[in-house]
Design a binder for these strands. Structure first.
Lengths: 172, 172, 172, 172
DNA sequence: CATGAATGAGGGTTCATTCAT
DNA sequence: TATGAATGAACCCTCATTCAT
């Protein structure tokens, strides 16, 4: 709280003029930083029914750009870090961010299946297959300071789609 | 520290006879809890050159079982949580755990390519494609308390291998 | 202060236009809430010289009704609570309330003695004997949440006058 | 808490090695300071059945001596002051001190009635008549800094017993 | 080798008070 | 006359670390 106050040019006490508690501050922070992104994903998924596979590619590209930004990825990092002491925050993040993003992805994935653009597989498995690698790369990059593939999101997504769409089995 | 001391049947002060600081304790904890697993992965990957793809499947299955255990997944969770304040811990975890596991995976993946079991793709992309979904599912399960696919690791791995090997494009 | 401001339909800052400090507010509060009562007691005692004993009974009955009201008894409670930190408040309360009430009581008690309605005893002892039990019952009721005799002030006073006038010695 | 720590020659944090919370500290303080007194009253009342009226006089004298001591009367003062913010403390004080003292008084009063030493009147009224004046005098003395009768407890009790036993009505 | 006792620095939070407008 | 915005000092409490024994 002290740090937040300092950044805002306020005293610690002044924060409590705007938020009733630390938890509320963090929820507002989540909402402000990543809420719009989850909402944007939902909008995009809804408006992209004409070509779901392309929409999926756009969503993935957007996601890759976002999590490449340390300031944005700081949010899930924070949530993971304090989820033990503040379970409400984890719950808030899940409900206001992750579940929205998941819903957007599921919508577009199921639309792609309906259109025959991708074959029918368990939806959750597909969701995992699309976000998991991005999430993992972000951790590797921001938490472990590994050499990152996130500085070229375009290429990262292409590789990922190549793997996921064509599969790893050698082509005949 | 208090809890750790209690578990060890020691006083808080006694911990400092064995470790110079909390950070050192955490590093030892990492080593003890997940060090052997990374080493085990390396051993397995080395001994599994006869059928790399099967070895990869075994590695993935093992990983799924491990991260399903809250006590084990607590370690990466912890690392992520405090990496901001204790970058040394992140570095330690990367060097002593993640890089070993990555190396094991890379070895087996490249062997599989060499044998023609999977087609040639950027190795990092393949690593991501295999670990990312598992890691993501673990976060969803342990941090966000989502309904988990980790209670059936076998099935989880099968779905994942189906997606990754055959790809999502509709079969002709 | 916040609550007081809200009740007054003012901002916290506006209070300081009317009062220099919290202490001053509390003094005004004391004056407003219980000042009139002490003054009333004095008036009553002055106008009741015809039958001092009956006046004493009326004063006691009034007192019992007042201290039964949590909103009124809140004032002496408050004074006791903060007298350690704010001796001025204690002094104010003593001079503006308690001494007036005591004077009223003493007047009427001495008049009763002069008229031969009660026998001559140390006046302070009589004052104590009349207020003490009421004050004690109020504490028991409002501070300790004990089962109260204050919900029937009439009966309380009757019992008390019976004890005090007739005494506890068995009658011959 | 800071003050308590300073007095004990400790840091604020050290208090929490001995007590789990502020409330616990206050409860211990109550127990240490006045718990024995309430217990002593019970013992005395139990052992004084031979002459209950004399026992009552002894109890009253003891009480007068105790509440004359500012250090002891500080306890009920404190309780009254914080009862609003810490209702548990009020409850604790009631159950561990006041109810015990009341029970002791009631025992001895009822024994005196049984023996015919005092006439039958509502017990609560008698309890009030005995402690109320003492309590009131203590407030007047310690809170309001009034001229006190407590510096001569013996005389105070004699006056009070004269009033209460013989009554205020003029003797024939 | 081990501990009980202690603490300084920090945590989140409240509140009487101030001041520019 | 009135306020919204702000704060310093205090509140209770926790924790990694130290040290005499």
């Amino acid at each position: 709280m002290e740090d937040i106050a300092k950044r805002a040019g306020l005293s610690k006490a002044a924060i409590y003029l705007y938020f009733p508690s630390k938890v509320a501050v963090l929820e507002a922070l989540i909402e402000a930083k990543v809420g719009p992104l989850a909402a944007g994903a939902q909008t995009l998924s809804a408006s992209g029914i004409a070509d779901p596979l392309m929409t999926l590619r756009m969503l993935a590209t957007m996601a890759a750009h976002r999590i490449a930004d340390p300031n944005l990825f700081a949010v899930p990092r924070l949530v993971i870090g304090i989820s033990g002491r503040f379970p409400e925050i984890a719950k808030y993040y899940r409900e206001h961010v992750v579940e929205k993003a998941r819903a957007a992805l599921e919508t577009v994935i199921e639309a792609a299946m309906a259109k025959g653009q991708i074959r029918r597989v368990d939806t959750n498995a597909v969701v995992r297959a699309f976000i998991g690698p991005l999430f993992f790369e972000a951790m590797w990059t921001h938490v472990l300071n590994g050499e990152t593939a996130l500085n070229n999101p375009q290429k990262l997504i292409e590789q990922q789609f190549d793997v996921l769409l064509s599969g790893l089995e050698p082509r005949a």
